[in-house]
Amino acid sequence: NQASVVANQLIPIQTALTLVMMRSEVVTPVGIPAEDIPRLVSMQVNRAVPLGTTLMPDMVKGYA
């Protein structure tokens, strides 16, 4: 099973992502693949992302 990127904390809207905000976890449905974590650093979320939420491509500006 492929690991996805999951929020390690509440990430407020417009926040630039850092490594400490994300973790990898095998979840359903599958979100952004964990191997993309380095690419996500400094990208902004376009909505508030609660703790434990799987990051989906449409939540990160410039990802999809």
Rank of each mutant, 00 (worst) to 15 (best):
M21D: 04
P29S: 04
N1M: 15
N8W: 04
T53Y: 10
V60N: 00
D58C: 08
M59I: 05
S42R: 13
T28D: 13
I37N: 00
A7T: 09
D58M: 09
L55R: 00
P33W: 10
P29N: 05
Q2K: 14
A48I: 12
V5W: 03
P50Y: 09
L19I: 12
A34E: 07
P33L: 08
V49R: 00
Q9M: 15
L10E: 11
V60S: 02
L19H: 09
V5S: 03
L55N: 00
R47N: 07
I11H: 01
S24A: 14
L19K: 08
D36Q: 14
Q9I: 13
P12N: 09
M59W: 12
Q9K: 12
T18R: 11
S4R: 00
A7E: 02
V20L: 14
T54Y: 02
M43D: 02
G31D: 01
L19Y: 12
E35M: 12
G52L: 04
T53W: 13
P50W: 05
G52E: 03
L55D: 01
P12M: 07
V60R: 00
A16L: 11
V41C: 06
V45G: 01
L19G: 05
G52V: 03
P12L: 07
L17Q: 00
A3D: 05
M59Q: 03
N46I: 14
V30K: 11
G31A: 03
T18P: 01
N1F: 14
Q14N: 15
M43I: 04
T54L: 04
K61V: 15
A34C: 07
M59K: 00
R39G: 10
P33S: 09
T18K: 08
P33D: 05
A3L: 13
D36K: 11
P38L: 12
R23M: 06
R47C: 07
G52I: 04
S42A: 11
M43Y: 10
V49S: 02
V26C: 08
T28H: 14
K61G: 08
P38E: 12
P57C: 06
L51S: 12
E35A: 15
G31W: 03
A16V: 11
P29D: 05
S24M: 11
V26L: 11
A34L: 04
V27K: 08
T18Q: 10
G52Q: 02
V41I: 14
M59Y: 11
L10A: 14
L40I: 11
V5R: 00
P12D: 09
I37H: 00
N46C: 05
T18W: 04
A64C: 07
R39V: 11
G31P: 02
A3E: 10
A64K: 05
V30S: 12
S4H: 01
L51Y: 11
G31F: 02
N8G: 08
L19Q: 09
A3I: 06
M21R: 00
N8H: 06
V30A: 13
V20M: 14
A3Y: 11
L55M: 13
S24Q: 08
T15L: 05
G52H: 07
A64T: 15
S42M: 10
Y63R: 01
L40K: 00
I32R: 02
V45R: 00
N1D: 12
V45F: 00
V41Y: 04
I37D: 00
G31L: 02
P38S: 10
N8L: 05
T18I: 06
T28C: 08
V26S: 08
G31Y: 03
P50C: 06
I37Y: 02
M56E: 06
T15M: 09
S42V: 04
V27N: 02
D58Q: 09
R47Q: 12
G52T: 00
V41Q: 05
G31H: 02
Q14R: 13
M56N: 05
A7R: 01
P57Y: 09
R23D: 05
V49E: 03
V6S: 00
D58K: 09
D36Y: 12
P33F: 07
